[in-house]
């Protein structure tokens, strides 16, 4: 085989497998470079989180997760995700229904608008709500007069989280529902099903794995968002601190075991997300959108 790797310099040569493969040493070198890069930039930071968290033993690790502030941060993170993800789930399904199943002018503009939050810095995602609802924002004076607090309170955190996770479900469902077309729904309607029956019994079963995929990604982002939430939270311990913000506070107080203990929970969440996402891709890849971008 090795002798064949060099194609004759002149004249057409029969295309052998070796002629379109790199020499073995090049292959090994490229694999090694790729693996070292992944190891250095992706695996090592992940390992560091757990090693640092457990550096004083498992007892110190568990103790670091028990203070009321840490528990409050965990509760708030779960609460925010439990509100933000369903909101965007409903929006994603409704928007995908309108965009994928009907033709109308301005459709691609609408898709561009839906993608907007992904191209905006997380800090700006938080900033825009301060400009609206902050003390000096558009609606600030009215909110103060009516004793409604959005910024530096839970509603602001929820809004910022909804903003950063806005496109996930919609951009997963739109191409998927476009691929599936409208024939099945039309058949159901002509057989006498009403609109809701058609949606629940025909459309939803067809998109369930894609939906789950979108929910998985938006949940991971919702629980892990830092920049946007940091701007609107006000960092009030035990009240408006989510888990990522709590990591920052503990870290800045040089409480490294505590910071990395909370961080390790978030890293576990990321790992679970990756495993479930890979399972979905391997098991139901054909039922996910092929043209996902």
């Amino acid at each position: 085989m090795a002798a064949e790797t060099k194609a004759p310099a002149s004249g057409p040569a029969p295309a052998s497998a070796a002629a379109i493969d790199e020499p073995a040493w090049v292959r090994r070198l490229l694999i090694a470079v790729g693996l070292v890069f992944i190891g250095l930039f992706l695996v090592l930071p992940l390992v560091a989180v757990f090693v640092e968290a457990l550096s004083n033993g498992i007892g110190a690790y568990l103790a670091a997760l028990r203070p009321p502030d840490a528990l409050a941060a965990i509760r708030l993170t779960l609460l925010v995700a439990a509100i933000a993800v369903p909101c965007n789930l409903i929006f994603g399904v409704v928007a995908a229904w309108a965009i994928a199943k009907f033709e109308f002018t301005g459709r691609s503009l609408l898709i561009t608008f839906i993608d907007l939050p992904f191209s905006v810095s997380p800090v700006i995602s938080g900033l825009v709500y301060v400009l609206l609802f902050g003390a000096h924002g558009w609606f600030g004076p009215w909110l103060v007069a009516n004793n409604v607090q959005i910024i530096f309170a839970v509603p602001g955190i929820v809004l910022a989280t909804i903003f950063v996770t806005f496109p996930f479900v919609a951009r997963e469902l739109i191409p998927l529902m476009q691929e599936q077309g409208t024939e099945e729904e039309e058949a159901a309607l002509s057989l006498g099903a009403n609109g809701w029956q058609t949606f629940w019994r025909v459309t939803l079963p067809n998109i369930k794995w894609g939906l789950l995929y979108g929910v998985l990604l938006s949940n991971a982002r919702a629980m892990g968002e830092f920049g946007a939430v940091s701007v609107v939270s006000g960092h009030i311990r035990g009240l408006t601190n989510t888990m990522p913000l709590h990591v920052e506070i503990l870290y800045n107080e040089y409480n490294f075991v505590g910071a990395f203990a909370v961080a390790s929970l978030l890293a576990l969440l990321a790992l679970v997300t990756l495993v479930l996402k890979s399972l979905l891709e391997w098991r139901f890849g054909h039922e996910l959108a092929a043209s996902r971008h």
Binding site: A220, G224, V247, L269, A270, L274
Partner: peptide
């Protein structure tokens, strides 16, 4: 290979603050 392939998405899934403190520690 499959594990490496799945790991490529880690930066999408890992909260940025966690990545920040981990990289700083390294």
């Amino acid at each position: 290979k499959r594990i490496v392939d799945a790991l490529v998405d880690l930066p999408f899934a890992l909260p940025t603050a966690v990545a920040g403190v981990a990289l700083t520690a390294l």
